[in-house]
């Protein structure tokens, strides 16, 4: 399977939800769509699913020498952002219904269900009504519903939302299993630490636009001019004041008098140090490469003034 998205645009009334977004996804990889609320992730997902069509640009999905302009239902496993199942029905009845709609026989559906319920430690609760489950367990049932029929492509809109850290780790393992089974996964998320562990490729979006794209390494390379500097001051300094410096894009306070600064692309280290010395004596200066979370924050910070302008 290959998915190629070329320069798609989508507007709802006066809101431009997606602006000129392009990317491609290869078979068997995990692809992450990242961005704050309203960045356009769900709009892209809804276009991939075929619920809406792009105003311009194209989506091409190739599978076994066939080409489609959205993911065919038979290939798709989907966890929507707006999700829910039948609260008055048991886990088993909910899953069996959806699996049979996907075309699975009852016996096949039950055997797949056994496997995934075991993975998520829900076997003992299979006859419980959904409304009796915690939000986290309901989310797990939704995840099972998306993959029960072994789709070629799984699209998960915010799969980590509403889960505690332990269950987030379980979802990471779940996604790794999907990849091991040869499924292609597209997910949207805010949880950078999770995405960093999982995603082969990622797309960072802000206000409908792609701001960074590629593998983690590629993104780090793209952002190599945005060096990060860990600095310590001998006395207290106001973080807001540091943020005003021309050489600084973002400021993150690490501990008392210690900050992590993302430097502006054009700024030199010496310029930055000169500016920092205005606020006091430096006790620590250390350069380091940014992790995804920091790159994401830096990209968002860079994007905001553009949008405001």
């Amino acid at each position: 399977m290959q998915l190629i998205v070329t320069a798609i645009n989508k507007a709802y009334s006066s809101v431009q939800a997606v602006k000129n977004a392009s990317f491609h996804i290869n078979s068997g990889e995990i692809f992450a769509l990242l961005g704050p609320n309203g960045a356009g992730k769900s709009s892209i997902i809804r276009m991939l699913v075929g619920m809406t069509k792009p105003d311009s640009g194209s989506i091409m999905i190739s599978y076994q020498d066939q080409h489609y302009d959205h993911v065919p239902r038979r290939l798709l496993g989907y966890l929507p952002e707006d999700r829910g199942l039948y609260p008055d029905k048991s886990i088993e009845k909910n899953l069996l219904y959806l699996a049979q709609l996907h075309g699975l026989s009852k016996s096949k559906a039950l055997s797949e269900m056994d496997y995934w319920l075991d993975v998520f430690e829900l076997t003992q609760r299979r006859h419980d009504e959904l409304k009796q489950l915690s939000k986290g367990n309901q989310q797990k049932v939704q995840l099972i519903a998306a993959v029960l029929h072994q789709p070629a492509l799984v699209i998960l809109d915010e799969p980590f939302s509403g889960l505690d850290p332990i269950n987030q780790e379980k979802v990471v393992l779940f996604l790794q299993q999907l990849k091991a089974k040869g499924m292609t996964v597209i997910l949207s998320a805010h949880q950078m630490a999770m995405v960093e562990k999982l995603a082969d490729h990622m797309l960072l979006m802000a206000q409908g636009q792609v701001v960074l794209a590629g593998t983690l390494q590629q993104i780090q390379q793209q952002s190599q001019n945005q060096r990060q500097m860990k600095v310590g001051f001998s006395s207290e300094v106001n973080a807001a004041q540091l943020e005003q410096l021309a050489a600084v894009v973002t400021v993150q306070q690490l501990q008392a008098r210690h900050y992590l600064l993302t430097l502006a692309e054009q700024a030199s280290v010496s310029d930055c140090l000169k500016q920092l010395l205005q606020y006091g004596e430096l006790t620590q200066v250390e350069m380091q490469s940014a992790d995804l979370h920091q790159l994401y924050l830096a990209a968002m910070a860079r994007h905001k003034p553009e949008a405001a302008a």
Binding site: R73, P80, P87
Partner: peptide, 13 residues
């Protein structure tokens, strides 16, 4: 209201 429709839309026309 139970938000099942979008899930079903991905399965059936």
């Amino acid at each position: 209201q139970q938000r099942v429709t979008e899930q079903l839309y991905a399965i059936v026309t």
